[in-house]
């Protein structure tokens, strides 16, 4: 009896927090999404599906987000994995901590400032200027989807590196020796042992990066020159510029639904792998 009471008490702050900060706003978003924009902006109650019918007007935002988010996740994975592998398996233990700190250090600076730095690196006085020295002229990098991708990879890399690093770090190195001992060359050992055992880290990293990317708006705005439009940008504009709360809510609700579906499918996939394996369990 008493234990039950204590459990409730322990869960109280989190429950209240979730209710106030997640459930309640979500209800507002859903209610608003059926309403209409007030003449001077804002919201007036109504019950119409007009806002949802208008969704195709943001098709490009959905398309850009749903292309660049998975692409960015995949690219971050491809860069993060070898780095995490090096840190966890190959790096000299003496330098390991220092190297890990170097991965985190950029996080001490605001993402805004770091992304601004990329404006200069990718801008005309940056990489394109260096390329001119070796005879490659007319390269434009800034304000392109490529620049957005670079920014995304840069910004989210540590989020991908750390879960993978942790899963590789706790990997028993004797398993690799066992595999070699049983006749498997290093590359096959990687494929048969290291990679499958780091799947939990990969799954967590991809999930983190993908979910955050779906709501990204800063990097496309700064490195895409306002021309590469994400759902996040559409939402910022709808709420802060056109002040069309009803339409904004419909876009937000749609984004939430897409995320729920994607994440559910993803978890099902991971769970299917996990059924056969005790070591794969995320969430």
């Amino acid at each position: 009896m008493q234990a039950k009471w204590i459990n409730r008490l322990l869960l109280m702050p989190a429950t209240v927090w979730l209710l106030v900060m997640l459930v309640l706003p979500l209800i507002f978003v859903i209610v608003f999404s059926f309403g209409e924009r007030a003449p001077a902006g804002g919201y007036i109650p109504a019950f119409s599906f007009e806002q949802y019918a208008n969704l195709p007007a943001r098709f490009t935002a959905f398309k850009n987000t749903l292309t660049l988010a998975p692409l960015g996740t995949l690219a971050a994975l491809l860069i993060a994995y070898p780095l995490a592998y090096y840190l966890a398996v190959k790096a000299n233990p003496k330098w390991k901590t220092l190297l890990l700190v170097m991965v985190i250090v950029p996080f001490w600076t605001s993402i805004l400032i770091r992304t601004y730095a990329w404006i200069y690196i990718l801008g005309g006085r940056g990489i394109p200027h260096l390329l001119e020295f070796i005879g490659i002229d007319g390269v434009r990098l800034i304000n392109t989807p490529f620049a957005v991708l670079v920014g995304i990879i840069y910004g989210y890399l540590p989020l991908m590196v750390f879960p993978i690093y942790v899963s590789l770090e706790k990997l028993d190195k004797r398993l690799l020796e066992a595999s070699a001992d049983l006749g498997s060359p290093p590359l096959r050992t990687f494929r048969q042992v290291t990679l499958p055992l780091s799947i939990p880290g990969v799954a967590t990293g991809c999930m983190l990066v993908f979910i955050l990317l779906m709501g990204e708006f800063l990097i496309p705005a700064l490195l895409g020159g306002g021309k590469v439009f994400f759902i996040g940008n559409a939402l910022v504009d709808l709420f802060l510029q056109s002040r069309n709360w009803a339409y904004g809510s419909a876009v937000a609700a749609t984004l939430v639904i897409i995320m729920l579906v994607t994440v559910t499918l993803y978890m099902k996939l991971v769970a299917r792998v996990g059924e056969q394996r005790e070591d794969v369990s995320i969430l």
């Binding site: 004797r174 398993l175 066992a178 595999s179 070699a180 001992d181 006749g183 042992v193 055992l197």
Partner: peptide
């Protein structure tokens, strides 16, 4: 000669069985 080319096999301390 690397381990994977040697005609010897080992039983590891704590066995090092593949958990997956």
């Amino acid at each position: 000669v690397p381990p994977y080319k040697r005609p010897v096999n080992m039983v590891f301390q704590h066995y090092a069985l593949f958990p997956h």
